[in-house]
């Protein structure tokens, strides 16, 4: 029951939102886009590991070979 992953992803999301707002104010919209993409990639990497773990667990518990 490690909720640290949820907090980590929420933190990434909010951090990306803040940085994007900052970059938009200073007029550098392209950088804001890159930061959003980076946040999305990092979040997806974390989520992919989690989904892999979940699917393996389900496969063992329910014998879905």
């Amino acid at each position: 029951m490690d909720i640290t992953i949820i907090l980590k992803i929420a933190g990434i999301g909010i951090l990306v939102a803040v940085i994007c707002q900052l970059l938009k104010q200073t007029g550098r919209d392209d950088m804001a886009m890159l930061v959003t993409l980076a946040g999305l990639v990092v979040t997806l990497m974390i989520v992919i590991d989690l989904i892999g773990g979940l699917l393996n667990n389900v496969r063992q518990v329910f014998e879905l070979y």
Binding site: M1, D2, I3, I5, I6, I9, A10, I12, G13, I14, V16, A17, C20, Q21, T36, G39, L40, T43, L44, I46, V47, L50, I51, G53, L54, N57, V58
Partner: peptide, 19 residues
């Protein structure tokens, strides 16, 4: 703030609960 980041977040929360 960031609608595109919501889906991975919701998937992660669901995974943690199911695990």
């Amino acid at each position: 703030y960031k609608p595109e980041l919501v889906i991975p977040f919701v998937i992660a929360a669901g995974c943690v609960l199911l695990l």
